Simulated assay, not measured.
Amino acid sequence: MARLTFKDFWRNKSFRISIVQTLFFMGWGMVFLHYNIVEYAWVMFLVFPIILGLSLGVLPSTSSVVKGLLVAMLIFFVFCIVSGLEGLICTVFLIPLILPPVFLGFIIAHLFKQYRLLSRKSELSIRLSPLLVLLLLGPLEHFTLQNDKTVNSVSTQIILPYPPTEVFHAIKSIDTLYGPKPFLMQLDLPVPHKCILEREEVGAYRICYFEGGKIVEEITMFEPGKLLAMDVIDYELTGRRWLGFKEAIYTFDSLTTGQTRLTRTTTYTSELYPRAYWKPFEKEGIQQEHHYVFENLRRKLGDRGH
């Protein structure tokens, strides 16, 4: 049997239309997202993919349409990563979220065709429907959710064989962070470099520098060996407008063994929906950054002890 090449697939009209149609509507979806017309929520991640699949499902050749869809998705996501429109992590997490609804819409359209429920006029309307969803439902959801930001907190703990005061002074300002990066940091999770405390008092600023940005914190509680609490007053982290950092707290608990239990709590807001899908990824990403800082702190305290 002769091997099929891309040229052979390209000769199929349904394959070509599937690629062009998918890229066209996904491109408009990205434009609407980046101009803040639609939210990173239900319309974009559920309704739009279903309608996109429905619009593709009315095309005649099922297998060719599926192949065209997958090729177009690959082209689109690679472009988003290379151009910097979206990060690698977001893209990896996004694919399993939107592909199932696309195929659900595709199956619905296939059933409509099988039972002859579609007319020529309705097919044309369905093929244009993804853009109508963005134009009509997207702004409506944006208006509904624009002030609805869920507040979340993530806490991580570590036990260190040092007294609380020593741990406190080691974490309040960190010169250089280095070492093995957790998995998500190896993709494109922001990597912290250093944190600088301008003064040791309430009201002072603590600035943490990352690859591609920084977080500016204002000290709200400064109790050596007990508590270091900060409000995030500004942050510049590329590609993450859907997360809003609110507060960072370190608590230091003295244990009877002479050790310290250090707890880091990050409070943030998120605009990503559905929450049941995104929240575990957000938690894992924040905890990986906590652990990265903790391991650096462990080395720093160990170096002091020598």
Score class of each variant (00 low, 15 high):
7 K>L: 04
11 R>H: 02
17 I>E: 14
30 M>E: 14
37 I>L: 13
38 V>C: 12
49 P>V: 01
52 L>H: 13
52 L>Q: 11
55 S>W: 12
59 L>P: 05
62 T>A: 08
63 S>P: 05
69 L>Y: 14
74 L>Q: 14
75 I>P: 07
78 V>K: 10
79 F>K: 09
82 V>L: 14
87 G>Y: 11
92 V>F: 07
98 I>G: 01
105 G>P: 12
109 A>S: 09
110 H>W: 15
125 S>I: 11
125 S>G: 03
128 L>I: 06
130 P>K: 15
131 L>K: 03
150 T>Y: 08
153 S>T: 02
156 T>M: 03
159 I>D: 13
160 L>V: 03
162 Y>F: 09
168 F>Y: 10
169 H>E: 12
181 K>F: 04
185 M>N: 13
186 Q>D: 12
191 V>G: 06
191 V>C: 12
192 P>M: 04
197 L>I: 12
197 L>F: 10
198 E>W: 13
198 E>H: 11
207 I>S: 05
210 F>T: 01
214 K>R: 15
216 V>L: 03
216 V>D: 12
232 V>K: 08
233 I>R: 10
234 D>N: 04
238 T>H: 15
238 T>N: 11
242 W>I: 00
252 F>S: 03
253 D>T: 03
255 L>N: 07
256 T>K: 07
257 T>V: 01
263 T>C: 06
267 T>M: 05
277 Y>N: 14
279 K>W: 11
280 P>W: 14
285 G>Y: 12
286 I>R: 08
291 H>C: 00
292 Y>Q: 07
298 R>N: 04
301 L>V: 02
302 G>S: 10
302 G>Y: 11
305 G>M: 08
